[in-house]
Design a protein around this nucleic acid. Structure first.
Lengths: 189, 189
DNA sequence: ATATTTACGGGACATTTGTCCCATAAGATG
DNA sequence: CATCTTATGGGACAAATGTCCCGTAAATAT
């Protein structure tokens, strides 16, 4: 069976719309996400966004899955590689933290916006939790107790926010993350 | 000179409006803050909110100062007392963290919303930084290095977010905070 | 007592919002 | 070819929004 070209193009545009929404969230916050604004950001008509996402909430939830999905995939791959190659987890975490506030700045900010929004919208919790799980997976390679790993993951979230507020380029953040991990891993040495 | 009763009553209503805005932010997010919604939450007319706060941004910034102000005052008093009485800072921090997700839930949530908003609105940064400073002050009683104290303060912010997401009643949070502080204070013992 | 200042309610305005409807082009299917 | 199906664009609609204006009551000042 051949793939329907129309469906394929539709899905492609759907992705463009989601990317537009994520960029919008990162730049101007969740409140800036309107059908029309997303349409303009994605370079499509407003009707197109209502076609692919019946309601705005659907669009937001989908954008959240998209944004976290990227980071989740990267984290999972990082975890797999670090586990295989026996890399220094503290260094890997430090490097990736820097990536989150530089290259992945938009997606990270979007995730933080939406994680906070999840406090009020139960529908967003599972995806948020999934992202936390992936980060915890990576840290758990270094810290035995998974509960501790979860604590560290949450703490790193706070460090990321501070880095954004201080317009830190990542240097300070990197040191903080590495140091934090060392504090919890000391008993391993 | 006698105080103008009208001005006094005006300021009182101004406070009511701010309280309404803070409650609104905590319950439904920053986006729910509209002149009319705030007016209804505060039990006043919409015109009254536009009278006391010419623009919505003014209202938001004022609400932020109000919300952080409460917490800042409490933290400052806590720091002063702990310093005077030589109390166990880890216990004080643990207890107050629990307070933040229970009794002070609304104000704390509002602060987190607005701290994140500060990433995009430079006007909100000073107040956010001031709140962080107060928290850092308290922690600095326990951890010598102020840089470390700031890191811990940021980390606690992350733990608070996680507590909200997990609907933690504070038990888990308290343990995490105390443990985190012990990790950084170990060299003191 | 009269005038002035302050606080506030009611209402209006243009703009933006979510959402829906219809026409049409492009691709798939018979 | 004819016939669906899918994806979009253009446009419309009511509702909500920020903001402004006018009238008025109450407190103060002269």
């Amino acid at each position: 069976m051949v793939i329907d070209g129309r469906l394929a193009r539709g899905q492609a545009r759907r992705q463009e719309i989601l990317r537009g929404a994520i960029t919008l969230i990162a730049h101007q916050g969740v409140s800036a996400v309107t059908h029309r604004a997303v349409a303009e950001a994605a370079g499509v008509s407003a009707a197109s966004t209502t076609y692919h996402f019946e309601t705005l909430d659907d669009l937001l939830i989908a954008a959240f899955y998209e944004a976290t999905g990227q980071l989740r995939a990267e984290l999972a791959e990082l975890t797999e590689r670090a586990s295989r190659e026996g890399a220094d987890v503290t260094e890997v975490c430090g490097d990736y933290a820097v990536t989150m506030v530089t290259d992945r700045r938009e997606a990270t900010l979007a995730c933080m916006e939406l994680a906070l929004a999840a406090v009020r919208r139960p529908g967003l919790v599972p995806a948020t939790a999934a992202l936390f799980e992936r980060l915890t997976d990576l840290i758990a390679l270094y810290v035995d107790d998974r509960r501790d790993a979860a604590t560290i993951a949450a703490a790193i979230q706070g460090l990321l926010l501070m880095a954004f507020l201080e317009r830190d380029d990542g240097v300070r953040l990197r040191a903080s993350v590495v140091d934090l991990l060392h504090r919890y891993g000391m008993h391993n040495h």
